[in-house]
Write a protein that binds this DNA or RNA. Sequence first.
DNA 1: TATGAATGAGGGTTCATTCAT
DNA 2: TATGAATGAACCCTCATTCAT
Lengths: 203, 203, 203, 203
Amino acid sequence: MRADAQRNRLRLLDVTIELILEAGGEPSRDAIADRAGVGIGTLYRHFPDQQALLHAVARHALEKSIGAGEAVLENASDGVDALRQYMHAALDNGIGVVNIIHPLLESHEWPDLRARAGALLKVIVARAIQDGMPGGDVSERDIVLAMIRFARPLAIGLPLDEERAMAHRHLDFYIDGLCLRHGRQIEPSSAAHPQGNIHANPR
Amino acid sequence: MRADAQRNRLRLLDVTIELILEAGGEPSRDAIADRAGVGIGTLYRHFPDQQALLHAVARHALEKSIGAGEAVLENASDGVDALRQYMHAALDNGIGVVNIIHPLLESHEWPDLRARAGALLKVIVARAIQDGMPGGDVSERDIVLAMIRFARPLAIGLPLDEERAMAHRHLDFYIDGLCLRHGRQIEPSSAAHPQGNIHANPR
Amino acid sequence: MRADAQRNRLRLLDVTIELILEAGGEPSRDAIADRAGVGIGTLYRHFPDQQALLHAVARHALEKSIGAGEAVLENASDGVDALRQYMHAALDNGIGVVNIIHPLLESHEWPDLRARAGALLKVIVARAIQDGMPGGDVSERDIVLAMIRFARPLAIGLPLDEERAMAHRHLDFYIDGLCLRHGRQIEPSSAAHPQGNIHANPR
Amino acid sequence: MRADAQRNRLRLLDVTIELILEAGGEPSRDAIADRAGVGIGTLYRHFPDQQALLHAVARHALEKSIGAGEAVLENASDGVDALRQYMHAALDNGIGVVNIIHPLLESHEWPDLRARAGALLKVIVARAIQDGMPGGDVSERDIVLAMIRFARPLAIGLPLDEERAMAHRHLDFYIDGLCLRHGRQIEPSSAAHPQGNIHANPR
DNA sequence: TATGAATGAGGGTTCATTCAT
DNA sequence: TATGAATGAACCCTCATTCAT
């Protein structure tokens, strides 16, 4: 691939994410091409249809999220802490930038990522349980679907920073609840995610 | 209003809710009319524009939710229990079926409902705090926005019953987390909600 | 026909003319029914379709115009004067309230009116020529089409009174020109139409 | 602009004029696109809304009309003749093709054209008066509104050539009448116009 | 007979996608 | 390869007309 083509491709991905985060919905193809400073034809050369573009964006976000999770896992001393950090990092890495990651993972696309994500999740959940999160009926599904939910914009016209703050705040309560299951009491919300939430307690 | 017109009106509201829950976004007018088995003109006679339809749907859901909350409040012996039951009932009553309830409540529409909803929320939160939910920075906003979030479809193609089950499950963890704040230990999620139906009566 | 039905029919005709003159285009069926204070169904009972209503309105205007022409003819001492008075009267009687009179007259509808209108026109033109209007290629067609033209609204948003004043003013110049053909000099615009024009010369 | 785009643009303008002249009202966008043989989207690319299209058409006609008038003024030896030629040329150039020229001229759009049109009219009328047209209450308004009126289709289904012939014929009588005011006798309608075509060059 | 609810064709407009330049 | 013009399906809405009450 020629260098300028490569540059266009990345620019298009970045712009798409920008626009999704700004407007909270799927941006129009024209808007993406305009903002990227290329013709609409160029957009289609790189991403033959809507799917292709969103897949690429999703893959991008997913890769970053998995990377973050793997890093967390390496450094964390506590499994529950690691789970919490991972979920917040996924939010910050745009895990929910599109609502298509889940079906994709369940399909046969991206076998590489599916494997990595699956392995990561399994370990993180296992470590969290090992370190005190009640097992029982709590499973990977409770993690994946929750990340999708907390990453979805509320769509009520909140400013972007409030939107993200509420997502992290809600997620924190959720994790607190997860770890409380079956009566175990933990230090709630102790390990905070790196950035951008208005969680009241100092972390 | 003529009997058949009344029937059509209700059918249109029901279908709209159905479609929103299935697709997770605003359904097209044509889709609504088709599913309801009426002409597009009939839809417009009953609801002159998108706003009117969504308002009607939202008001419908909001009224039922408030009603449920008031009933809960009357019968509940414990404030935290009442809060939990209220939030689940709101989900079952379609509280988040549209993303417009919140802005509307903040505007000057529906002064009657706003007053009722505001009063109800205040009492429910106060009673929950009184019965053990940590006060601190937890406020009505944490209840309202959470209901909107948990009621939003995940939009990943889940069948309707799974979608609803996950919403209630996520909500339960969230409430557990809310009430756990500052170390208080409660009996978590003890009262599992029945298989909630959006048209079910408040429990 | 029952008395109230008869009343409704007339009311509908009147309202239609009113609305045409107010808005300058074909009014909507709903607007007519509303203004007349009847249901849309009643409108359709009296006038089974758009055509029928406009025909009725046109016939109404045409009858009045012919009546006015016949009256003029009886009283006028000068043929050119009579022609002028007739054309102005036709304008005032709403001859152009719809643009469908002409095709109707050329078809086989209204044989009675066609006969009367044809006879009247023939006599009026003949008398005008006899009293000084140049014959040559001037024909009834120059009268009929001119009335249609001067009765058409300019559709540039003029207030109703200006619109009508300009119609009469333009018509006056036109008649002056008609009678000037082939070098004959007449006293221009001497015989004025009864009402509603801003013709500068005192009549 | 690409060659084919340019071709489409002109074709759309031509077709719009055709349809207006045939039907006597604003044609539907679908009808225009169909007749021009392009997709509806192409029409919208060139003219983003009804206004834009009608403005373009009107401006086109107005420019040609003014050009014709200026040419006439340069070559004409007689002011009344020049007025007559100008008005006929304006008809041939589609001056009244839309009923929006007048309001636009009275608004603040097209300051360039307004200035040119205003200057031209003033000179032409002055020269006509100087060469024998009675002044008195005759003004530029009698010229402008008359051009609009005579250019409007009668909307009675006449074939296009008859429609145009009648417009010129009516206009001729009108000008005769205008110039006859106050008893001045002129050589009426001597210079019959050739079979004018809307795209013909000014004579 | 009167009413007004229901219908659906048609007009306006947007936008994902294709294709000529 | 990059461009942006062209396409047309799909959406929103209006209104003439039909039909159940």
